[in-house]
């Protein structure tokens, strides 16, 4: 089960990849970027994607594409960082444990060895794990195109099913994560499809607890529930300023599905997803709050 034929291009740099993307766009032929290939190759094998050109970024030598760096109040993660490297990274484990926690729930050991952070985000599978996390963390996504670099807020990045705010001739190069303030905890809760490992629903929460024990700030990212990941803004608003006990949090998270056009498919009905979104949101907020005060 090979993919359909395509022409293969090995990009030595991001700029070279951008040049190729521009050239093929001008020619009117479809081109796709290849990183770890663990989102793209499966859909190509099923002929759901048949790009005429594949541009392999894995050999690009740009330093910003790989690894995790802490600069002052920002943690920067290169797009080609694998799930496995994210899972083990000491800086993230200490300062942003949500992403290592999510990385450990992606696919399986072999998938984590190849699949990349940037590739997952750019593919924007509605059931991928990281979209929930980057929404909860309020990251900035860095895209480079022919006109230079721009940043896209996580809130503006996931647009629709398998669709992001990236332009066809842009390359996602890195993700900038704000270092969270003191008394902040984070948690990812996932109900995984038993066969695929993808999230039926996944909820990430980042909670800052005030000195009086109330909720000072909270961001909740939901994946798997709709055709793209989204924040649970109504539940967030209901939580801020209130106590973080189980019944208050559960009541606030009863609105966690608001604004999400819930999927109804063979994996789960819309009503089932609604219940899971609410339940996992409450669990994620409580666990995050517990870590914040621990």
């Amino acid at each position: 089960m090979n993919p359909a034929t395509f022409e293969y291009h090995r990009a030595g740099s991001v700029d070279e990849a951008i040049g190729l993307l521009g050239r093929f766009a001008a020619e009117g032929t479809e081109a796709k970027l290849l990183a770890g290939g663990h989102s793209l190759l499966p859909v190509m094998k099923l002929r759901l994607a048949e790009p005429a050109h594949l541009i392999d970024l894995s050999g690009a030598t740009d330093a910003d594409l790989r690894g995790v760096r802490l600069d002052g109040s920002t943690i920067t993660v290169g797009a080609l960082t694998t799930h496995r490297d994210l899972e083990r990274d000491a800086t993230l484990r200490e300062r942003c444990p949500l992403l290592p926690q999510q990385a450990g729930r992606v696919g399986d050991r072999q998938v984590r060895a190849r699949g990349t952070f940037g590739g997952t985000l750019a593919h924007a599978d509605p059931a991928a794990d990281y979209p929930a996390g980057v929404l909860a963390l309020g990251v900035e996504i860095v895209a480079r195109g022919p006109g230079g670099e721009r940043t896209i807020a996580a809130d503006d990045f996931f647009v629709a099913f398998l669709t992001t705010a990236l332009a066809p001739d842009e390359v996602l190069t890195e993700v900038r994560i704000p270092v969270t303030p003191a008394r902040t905890g984070m948690e990812y809760q996932k109900l995984a499809n038993q066969a695929s490992g993808y999230a039926v629903v996944g909820v990430a929460a980042v909670v800052t607890v005030g000195a009086d024990g109330t909720c000072e700030a909270v961001r909740i990212g939901v994946t798997g529930a709709g055709d793209h990941a989204a924040r649970a803004v109504t539940a967030e608003a209901a939580l801020v300023g209130g106590p973080l006990d189980a019944s208050t949090v559960a009541a606030a998270c009863a609105s966690a599905d608001e604004g999400i056009d819930l999927l109804d498919d063979l994996h789960a009905s819309a009503d089932y997803r609604r219940r899971i979104v609410r339940g996992l949101s409450a669990r994620a907020v409580l666990a995050a709050a517990g870590r914040a005060t621990a």
Binding site: L34, H38, L41, D56, Q110, A113, R114
Partner: peptide
């Protein structure tokens, strides 16, 4: 460990 059905030879 990787799955060799998920890697192109050129990779």
């Amino acid at each position: 460990a990787v799955k060799s059905c998920m890697v192109l030879t050129v990779q």
